[in-house]
Design a protein around this nucleic acid. Structure first.
Lengths: 195, 195
DNA sequence: CGCGACGTTGATTTGCCTCAACGATTGTGG
DNA sequence: CCACAATCGTTGAGGCAAATCAACGTCGCG
């Protein structure tokens, strides 16, 4: 694995939102940690406390939880250039109730919380960057509440395909179903009906 | 209206979470704005940009939006000592798509965004206080996604009554239905069935 | 008093689930 | 490298949760 390439990919991602000088980049680079996950490996399991922010350099991840009937419910999906986490656990430093899992062999760039917070003081642009990310996460979750109340299953599927075009082909259909809140059988039925 | 009492109520609320010196309290008090709303008045309407954080001193508020069929969906309810807002609009300073409305004659203590942000620099505890509030809002919304996927309507109603015990009696049933994501008729049916 | 807002009831319909069975594909150990 | 198991998607029959529509009772308020 080529850490330099991953560094570049990551810094590139940051620079789409903020302007960084060379010394800023060095400071940031110095705290990065790389993590490799094999398909089906867990990054976070219930009981753990999220200690890092995680950027996907390569691969595909999802977060989900199990309800009282041991049914899976997918909350988030992500591929290259997306962030994944249990933000609740990361922000509150309380035990997670969720799984965060690799759906493919995946490479992450991680920023440990402690060092990231020091970095906030030295590079305020980074602090703003993450403030916006968290804000975006809030908006995304609220959006889900809204359309789970306004839309029927097919409309939600349609929305999903628009928002996650690149992800749809890479994840099994039963996971998409668990994201939409329907059974795999019913999603299959919907796809046929509208094809 | 007795502004002194409202000030005290508000400072009291803050002091349950943070320790404040006398000068801090003065600084905070100096930026507070009071707002009175009559039943059915709107604090925020679609197109507006939320400019303040709003603490309910007395009364009852809700936020909701209209879907494409002009159906109301209630997102948040609050009474004395709760915060109400369209946090999305407040944080991003973009146009709201929601209504925030008084369900009773209501008195708010407001903190204008601009002055609040200055205050963050002078009284860091306040900055932390709101960071936690926003975090809490995120958790609450995620909780809603989770139980809208795991629970049936009656379980959601039951949860609602546990979490909003004091609110249940004060708001009309059709608004609770629109919070739960069911029709008023069906909520009525559920109540009878389980009584 | 009369009107509008709210809650209830019942009949009917619909969206989605459950369960069971069956291909197709993938992956894996011998 | 094949054979077999596991994983995944599909189909269909039947059932249940919740919506829709229409009608009616009640209460508070102008």
């Amino acid at each position: 694995m080529d850490k330099n390439t991953y560094n570049k990919t990551f810094i590139n991602h940051l620079q789409q939102d903020v302007n960084l000088g060379a010394t800023d980049i060095d400071k940031i680079t110095s705290i990065l940690v790389f993590k490799e996950l094999k398909k089906k490996d867990f990054l976070i399991e219930p009981g753990a406390i999220a200690q890092t922010m995680n950027f996907i350099v390569q691969g595909c991840m999802r977060s989900f939880y199990l309800d009282e009937n041991a049914q899976e419910h997918t909350l988030q999906l992500g591929i290259e250039n997306w962030w994944v986490n249990d933000l609740y656990s990361y922000l509150s430093q309380k035990k997670s109730r969720m799984y965060v899992q690799a759906l493919e062999n995946t490479i992450l760039v991680q920023l440990p919380k402690q060092e990231l917070e020091k970095l906030y003081l030295e590079v305020p642009e980074i602090s703003n960057f993450f403030r916006k990310k968290i804000q975006g996460a809030y908006v995304a979750v609220q959006e889900r509440v809204i359309d789970s109340m306004s839309d029927n299953a097919y409309e939600r599927y349609d929305n999903f395909r628009k928002t996650y075009r690149d992800i749809e082909q890479r994840v099994p259909q039963y996971i998409i179903a668990s994201y939409l809140g329907v059974t795999p059988e019913f999603l299959s039925y919907l796809r046929k009906k509208h094809s």
